[in-house]
């Protein structure tokens, strides 16, 4: 895949990769296969080195990588017969949340995910993945539909936050999210949640309550974005790196704090480097988790779900 957009941390890797490309062009005239393979080895080492020492802020940037696979990419790569469904039946169809039934490894599953755009035009169309209340209500309608036909739900979380717009407030952004938390905690079918990019606050959690919470390796999940946290607590945008550090927002942190159940591996260099491989890894994890929850009796997994969130928190009694 041609890499057009890359981050500062990827630069040394991309530079070497471009060099190999140039060498390949010349290899008609010269035999430099040995040099090429040496360089490839060097790239692998470099990548390992860079990716084993990522700072939280670098992980935030990877989670926002403009070439990262988004919800619809994963759905199309992981499933068959996806039928996208639209609208909340009250106000409209929010393009920042997509959903519909699809076939995952032989079973029908309701997929719901936040959807970002890939360029300016599609980002405006998708509102940069920031849902309005009708998005959360559409998600809830689709979950209820899944419940009615006894199909499990898989949600894919990837949002910089719920949209803080005038109309969003008028139509009850807070109520829409609160209602989803409330309804998802007692939805009568298994729910598997996967954070596939950005998990920003209530906007992410609005489709993020479930029996198992998965998180891809280079994602972040927190109560606020590092930038906003910096501007509120430090009263300046300049402390975002420090805020990212303080907030403990990486997948590893989330696993340590027992907020998620499992980290899903990403291809070498991040999901954006190989969409197919990323989808394969996520699909495998989703099927395993779905199988494990489906084995449990309904009353039990519902009890477990409320207990799971009920136990979250640290305090001195």
């Amino acid at each position: 895949m041609a890499v057009q957009n890359y981050l500062e941390i990827e630069k040394p890797i991309i530079t070497l990769e471009n060099k190999i490309k140039e060498m390949r062009k010349m290899s008609d005239q010269l035999d430099i296969s040995h040099e090429i393979s040496k360089l490839e080895e060097r790239i692998n080492e470099l990548r390992k080195e860079i990716f084993s020492n990522l700072t939280p802020w670098q992980i935030v940037q990877l989670a926002r990588h403009p070439e990262r696979p988004y919800s619809l990419d994963y759905i199309y790569l992981m499933t068959e017969n996806f039928v996208e469904l639209h609208g909340d039946r009250h106000f409209g169809d929010d393009k920042a949340i997509v959903g519909g039934f699809a076939n995952l490894d032989g079973r029908t599953v309701m997929f719901i995910g936040q959807q970002k755009g890939r360029d300016t035009k599609s980002n405006i169309y998708r509102n940069f993945g920031m849902p309005n209340p009708e998005g959360y209500r559409k998600a809830l309608r689709l979950m209820k539909l899944a419940e009615k036909f006894n199909k499990p739900v898989i949600t894919l979380v990837d949002t910089p936050g719920a949209f803080p717009g005038i109309e969003a407030e008028e139509r009850g952004q807070a109520e829409a999210i609160a209602k989803n938390l409330y309804e998802m905690s007692s939805l009568q079918v298994p729910i598997i949640v996967a954070i596939i990019g950005e998990g920003a606050s209530g906007g992410a959690l609005g489709i993020g309550v479930g029996d198992k919470i998965l998180m891809l390796k280079y994602c972040w999940y927190s109560v606020i974005s590092p930038e906003s946290c910096s501007s509120i607590l430090w009263r300046s945008w300049d402390f975002k790196e420090q805020a990212a550090e303080s907030l403990k927002l990486t997948a590893k942190d989330m696993l340590d704090l027992k907020i998620i159940d499992r980290i899903v591996e990403e291809p070498e260099g991040g999901a954006h480097r190989d969409h197919e491989e990323a989808a394969k890894l996520l699909k495998k994890a989703l099927i395993e988790e779905l199988d494990s929850v489906s084995k449990i009796k309904k009353d039990k997994f519902l009890d477990n779900r409320i207990k799971k969130f009920g136990e979250m928190g640290f305090f001195k009694d």
Binding site: G202, L205, L233, L257, F309, M312, F314
Partner: peptide
Amino acid sequence: ARMMEGAISLMQLAKTSS
């Protein structure tokens, strides 16, 4: 939500709602 407890604060939304 209290920022100083990061995602743990966020989870209190789910905890109280459930």
